[in-house]
Write a protein that binds this DNA or RNA. Sequence first.
DNA 1: GCCGTTTTCGGCCCGACTGTTTTCAGTCG
Length: 575
Amino acid sequence: MPVQNADIAAVLEEIADLLEIQGANPFRIRAYRNAARSVGEYGRSFSSMTEAGEEIPHLPGIGEDLAAKIRDIATTGKCHLLDELRRQLPPAITELLHLPGLGPKRVSALWHALDVQTLEQLHRAALDGRIRELPGFGEKTEAKILQAVEARMGTERRFRLAVAGQYAEALTAYLKKSAAARRVEVAGSFRRMRETVGDLDVLVTAGQGSDVMERLRAYEDVAEVLSIGPTRASVMLRSGLQVDVRLVDEASYGSALCYFTGSKAHNIHIRRIAQERGLKINEYGVFRDSRRIAGETEESVYRTVGLPFIAPELREDRGEIEAARAGALPKLVELSDLKGDLHVHSVATDGRGTLREMADAAQAAGLKYIAITEHSRRLTMAKGLDAARLLRQCDEIDELNGELKGITLLKGIEVDILDDGKLDLPDSALAKLDVVIGAVHSAFDLSRTRQTERILRAMDNRYFGILAHPTGRLIDRRAPYDVDMARIIRHAKERGCALEVNAHPERLDLLDTQCKAAKEAGVLVSINSDAHSTLDFANLRFGVGQARRGWIEAKDVLNAQLLAQLTRFLAKLRA
DNA sequence: GCCGTTTTCGGCCCGACTGTTTTCAGTCG
């Protein structure tokens, strides 16, 4: 089993945790955490690179020392420093560090004074009332720790973007009803369109003597008030979703929005640039000495550090600041750029809308064409189509196209990629279609090599147009299957086919970093809803968000093309 | 551990809230 980038990142994270408990230099700890993030997000496999004798590429924040450690971990899966730290500290202690309310100092104190090394021991110590006896701890702290341990034992979770969106919408509508509230904006990872969010960060501006915080406390969905002050509050909703609310003046709105939108890494980078220019950025504004020089809008904040506005989806410190400085920010794709949707199901298989209903809904969503792409015969549970039924559907589509105005249905299929890389329908059937999407729906546990080869072989079919949900993951439910995505992207480039960004909130597949890799390789993506009902076209916005996080522009998107262009693209594939 | 219009040492983003204190450390975002 080769060492994945995620494995290397996990080693670096564990080192950071253990160093933190040891009380090491906080900047050294940050260096390990930054490196873990860079490695985890990097598009190519470090172990493949070292195996091929390549040097570790130069990445910001990774110097000689870390590069050497990464090389070691990539080749051996081990790291001397981690082994050493594990000898000095109880290894399970890192899970204590991840409990809310416990930081390195307290974890260290609990360990040294009470020999607490595990969640279970911490639970016992809290129940026994031993924690309150420690200097610096008290009854309330002990109670919070007990609660945190029990919450962790019941496993806490992140919320899918679309789910968090429902809570966000209800809460913001409620807060807006406050007479004093002017603006109510959800910032944080929600605004950055991350696929999951851990909490909601809500920014509010309000007039003097506002009742916003009291109103928040009285919200019927609040299960617990975690902390509340005049300008800042945290509450837990009944769903388990935490909400942090921040109240600021209108004049600070832009800087507060920047601060609250993050990401943390992006903010730190921006503040460092400000510092070099003799400026200080906080949530209240941009300051030269004690004089505020900007802050009312986000644009004004970026301007003080010599940068243009950077879209929230890009704010991950993945090169967007350098790109902004060079005037090379992407002009990100927008929902309105989409002209069609190339992955749609109907009642013929496992969808819930008729062809006409789906066409009407797509048109209402502003689309000019959709491809009907049912499952193929192998997916019996979904009533997958065989060649004969597929041909009958083609006739239906022809007939319906004669009646429809302003929208065109394309004939397609979401054909299963069989274990050996063959497609689930004969070429003679595929040849009759406008667009063929290939998808893996079985044998998720093949080895990396076999899974990758399987997909590459499928792409070699002359009719293959788009690889559906390329990693197969279901957020929080199913891990991605093990494939070499860099190879798949290269192969897609050679073959001229496209990769899907599946917009279903549970899929969001390609991942953001893979979108960027595809773009850099010159491979088009297709942002598709995978609609199974007329309501599902609304999910396209999540796919667009994911693509924007991956620096995708309209010119990188297959279904941002007009129908005539698309037709030429598909014809060229088969030539 | 990284990094350099302050360049090989000495910095490294910034502030609110809580609880345990009696002026502040710890944690969080």
